[in-house]
């Protein structure tokens, strides 16, 4: 029998969530999400036009946003690890590394995602922000994304990871 190397059903994030404290107020996540939705909108990264501008290499804007986000996040993560900062409830902060497996999932899945990103002009965060901006037809894109997620779930045992 061919051995199929794919990660266990619960992947890193789901496993981490299972370990996380079960009772945890939700209001704080709502507030961070609101800030996220505002900044995605005001920086125009939810615009199909901006995504096209990025993939055509015709402006620095998107590269600046993503690059600065990565730089600030990387510095923060470095400091959190170096100082062994604890989360506000006193737990040690754990960041699950990504499991390489055979690597197929990253380049094949990534390329499939990229096709969708350029066609819809939106990745999952912007899909939610666009709904708030009254672009209600994105609800259909969301349903499409849910269908895609379900299809992946169903085909998962057969796909190379």
């Amino acid at each position: 029998m061919q051995t199929i190397d794919y990660p266990p059903t619960t992947d890193a994030t789901a496993a981490q969530e299972a370990q996380a404290p079960p009772k945890d107020g939700l209001l704080k996540y709502l507030i961070v999400g609101i800030f996220f939705g505002i900044v995605l909108t005001k920086s125009e990264v939810i615009s199909w036009f901006r995504i096209q501008e990025m993939f055509r290499f015709q402006a620095f804007h998107m590269y600046g946003v993503i690059g600065a986000a990565v730089a600030v996040a990387a510095l923060s993560v470095y400091l959190i690890k170096k100082r062994q900062t604890k989360s506000f409830n006193g737990d040690a902060i754990k960041i699950q590394p990504k499991d390489w497996g055979k690597g197929y999932r990253y380049w094949i899945g990534g390329t499939i995602f990229g096709l969708g990103w350029a066609l819809t002009g939106a990745c999952p965060g912007p899909i939610f922000a666009l709904l708030g901006n009254g672009v209600l037809v994105m609800a259909v894109a969301l349903l499409g994304a849910l269908a895609g997620t379900w299809t992946y779930a169903a085909l998962r045992p057969k796909l190379p990871h």
Binding site: G114, L115, G116, C123, A141, T149, A153
Partner: peptide, 11 residues
């Protein structure tokens, strides 16, 4: 496009 975003991101 939405389908590919959902399928690709989970894959």
């Amino acid at each position: 496009g939405g389908f590919l975003v959902g399928f690709g991101s989970r894959y």
